[in-house]
Design a protein around this nucleic acid. Structure first.
Lengths: 228, 228
DNA sequence: TGACATAGTGTCTCTGTGACACTAATATCA
DNA sequence: TGATATTAGTGTCACAGAGACACTATGTCA
């Protein structure tokens, strides 16, 4: 028994939050199929370089976009005969988070990578089934935001509670209680209160950072955010 | 750029609960490497037959063990150069649940598939990194049991609350409150109370079944089972 | 210095799980 | 036939953590 081996690729949905907007990093395809269309950064595993698929995801993000995510997790494998015109394909999708930064200028003069507002995705035709993959990733990110501090990985090294709250509310598209967030910051033991405060128009705000090597804590209850 | 394509396989961790014991279905390998050792049922995708990897998992379970799981979900992709002596490999692991039934007699006279108590796994040398995969699957199953009715898929078509409680307690290895379970059965709306009751040495117990096409509900709180 | 803005606290309500005693219904056996 | 054991199911209070929101604290700015 020898089977035709399907194409195996690794693609990543890299999110960030900027200006109260959830954005996803897309790259312009340089090759057929879907040449010139927006797509998730990804590609083939390189068994010489990548000890595993996590490293493939990291490498592809680095090479194609210049970003190294603060958080990276497997999302799902999507497979089938119809999703790639070249034939049966299997894709391992990751989702990842990073603090916002502008996309660095690349060698090419053309813009080949760009942060795109998830709400504007319908305006852009996406390659393959990447629109569905992004929707899956967003749903997972929203769910996980209800029971963990995962949105902290969208923030810069030093941040305030207000910033974290903004990011959370942007992701789940609902307001949360500041008090609940503070209780969770305390309970998670994931953060260090720095000796610094920052000005934001009123009383100075305590700065926090993520403890080195801190694990993501899962709470036993979801935040029960109500609509608007 | 052309890369060597790694081996891609699909393996499934099929669980059931019998006699207050969590069991996993293993098969004896018929080929090298690890010939004759216990391994997860799985194999290569067949792009002619399998519309996607879920179908690969189903097909392999059916062909190698005769079981069709009531629940099947992706677990994780495991990849690396060291896990298969034949070279770099990528495995998509599933975990699945089914009501207990004896393994059907196969064509071969040798026993080639068997339910094995997860607590006895250390007694059996497992092929590849399958022991780790089972541990991952078990952890996920335990976690999901805290906030969903997933253990119901380990039960026969008609079952009592006591049976469901037994299965849950076996999976999480902790006692739970019958009352909490009944509240969740009610709230989930996943089950139908049948017009039948069953005898179990005392008052007759209400029989339930899973509503056809019922989705797995996620509760907003975990059961907070305490140790023993 | 007073108005305003943002940070952070105090505390009560609300909801769903934990605990556990109590009632209900059936089998068994004297 | 009735007492007892056994398992099913209910009533209800305690508990913990989120929601709500007013209140205090501390900064900026005119």
């Amino acid at each position: 028994m020898s089977y035709k081996n399907p194409l195996f690729t690794v693609d990543s949905v890299l999110f960030t939050v900027q200006d109260n907007t959830l954005k996803v990093l897309l790259v312009k395809r340089a090759k057929a199929p879907f040449l010139g269309q927006w797509a998730l950064p990804g590609g083939f595993i390189d068994i010489e370089q990548d000890a595993n698929t996590d490293e493939t995801a990291h490498r592809k993000l680095r090479d194609k976009t210049g970003f190294t995510p603060q958080y990276l997790e497997q999302l799902q494998v999507i497979s089938g005969a119809e999703r790639d015109p070249r034939g049966y394909s299997v894709t391992l999708a990751y989702y990842a988070l990073v603090a916002h930064a502008p996309v660095k200028a690349r060698i090419d003069s053309v813009k080949i990578a760009q942060w795109i507002d998830v709400k504007d995705l319908s305006l852009h035709p996406l390659a393959f089934d990447h629109a569905q993959i992004i929707a899956l990733a967003q749903a997972r990110l929203q769910q996980k935001t209800l029971y963990s501090m995962i949105p902290a990985f969208c923030l810069p090294e030093r941040f305030t509670i207000a910033q974290l709250q903004q990011v959370i509310e942007t992701i789940i598209e609902k307001p949360i209680q500041r008090k609940s967030l503070m209780r969770r910051i305390e309970a998670s033991e994931m953060f260090t209160a720095l000796d610094e405060k920052t000005s934001s128009g009123g009383r100075l705000a305590q700065l926090y950072s993520i403890k080195a090597g801190a694990d993501l804590v899962n709470f036993e209850r979801n935040l029960m955010a109500k609509d608007e």
